[in-house]
Design a protein around this nucleic acid. Sequence first.
RNA 1: CGGGGCGUAGCGCAGCCUGGUUAGCGCGCCUGCCUUGGGAGCAGGAGGUCGGAGGUUCGAAUCCUCUCGCCCCGACCA
Length: 573
Amino acid sequence: MRYSQMLIPTTRENPAEAEVVSHRLLLRGGFIRKLTSGLYTFLPLGLLTLQKVAAIVREEMNRAGAQELLMPMVQPADLWQESGRWQKYGAELLRFRDRHQRDYCLGPTHEEVITDLARRELRSYRQLPVNLYQIQTKFRDEIRPRFGLMRCREFVMKDAYSFDVSDEAASKSYEVMRDAYHRIFRRCGLDFRAVEADTGTIGGSFSHEFMVLADTGEDTLVICSHCDYAANVEKARVALPEDGMAQEEMAPMARVATPGMKKVERVAGFLGTTPDRVIKTMLYLADGEPVAALVRGDREVQSVKLKNLLGATEVEPMPDDEIWQRTKLPAGYMGPVNIGIRLVADQEVMRMVNAVAGANEKGHHLTGVNPGRDFQPDLTGDLRQITTDDPCPECGGSLTLTEGIEVGHIFKLGTGYSEAMKATFQDRDGTEKHFVMGCYGIGVSRVVAAAIEQNHDEHGIIFPLPLAPFQVIVLNLGVNSEATSRAAEQIYHDLQAAGLDVLYDDRDERPGAKFKDADLIGIPFRVTVGRTWEKEGKIELRRRATGETVTMDYDGAVGRISAMIRDELAGQR
RNA sequence: CGGGGCGUAGCGCAGCCUGGUUAGCGCGCCUGCCUUGGGAGCAGGAGGUCGGAGGUUCGAAUCCUCUCGCCCCGACCA
């Protein structure tokens, strides 16, 4: 491709709207342009990059035995009513009516459509297992789209769905996908981890997220430094030490005045104790109902864990100004004793002895509070956020926290959808059985953003070779010299003939501008035909990633370069 | 939706507080000359209903009201 004929609107200055690196560089490099919040046009360079990712995904999915199909983006409401998600999915599901006043939605995901297809077309166990996937635009009416391609409303996703005869078979399908995902992200040149994850609105019993490690990630992961345990903090199990029981006589409960002492630290300091001897009471709304969650004073509630423990679909902290109004409890002085609303306690709280807790009376706390004796929670379990002070739940090793970008998520769905939608097949013994399903997503457009988050410097993007829109850029630094231009053109043609993706910068620009643009758009290899060619008959090859530059004879250069690129690609496969 | 910030030329910004000529600057764009190894220089030029509506005023980018949009922090997720 000739640079002069391609729309690559690079900018020198940073766009005001972009804060994170990938967003900034995608805009500056002329990969994307914003239409409106959360909606982006992929410009030619952006589309090429997206297609590179899609090609890798497609290749590995096919290799794993999955079949590609394409489902409609517009989906009828009745399918969603059947699965129950028309009510459950919430405002993220964009709904609308057609001219006949029939309800539809734009597909945020395709469990309903695929399950409908399966129940019509898959009749016999002989047809199973089946794994069907598509690469398609999804629409989710996100509360807050942000960070460019990282979190859009419209985005490109690969979604796959597996159908199996049994749970064991489904587990096998799941493992096949897990392996495929590892290959995909490895081939994309990304530093990633597969972590245990929460299942969210998709539902299901078991899932892993694939996280690209990057500071701008929206998720936090815990990673064990000794074994291969890794988990999303939303999910990470907190191990309860065997010998955590305090050896202390239970004291009688006493009411003390603690005027103005709302924060745990202040109460503890005032009463001459430490936050780990205080029971912290946090109020939440679980599906609209008030719930009190108890954790030790030096811990934080993990609301996803709370949600799962309660079996709720939505949990949010109760706004301060609603606490009194809804519960008649004084914010800052709440405690578990005679609280009068649903009570959930972290496992650790149940071991506390002679704790301090709010008295449910303004300006007062209780001392000598003992769980089991003075209050009995409705539920107990693992409720708190894990910290780096906690041991690894698998091996007891030490944990570190890292930010991550979720680029893939795989779920074991079980029979939830097939039961709701009566999707069955006839098994070997003649009985009708529900399909055991799995679903597997990859944010194809997000992979592009994640790759940039992980691979850039102050000059611009440094694309991993497999994702780069072009593998080589040829700079003609002598567009006004016929001889130089002829040499550059020849190299351009020969590299193309060797099967490489080549961008040929034939613009009438000064060298500086060409170097800057080449760096900005992140093409892995740069060939320069200019002064050194004119003087010594040599050309220059420079690697974007390392800055390493070699000069080589013009003759034979194309062979050397294409061999180098092929070797590198083969090595990553 | 709650909290914070911003809308002035294609992009980045100044001007607004304290109303008053023809609304500026840098980059980019067009023409010519010149230049060609890290975003050159000179000369000339095009480009704006100051997000929109209403109001105050002799007079509004500037003050007031409403409204729309965008960005950032939280819940959501590939």
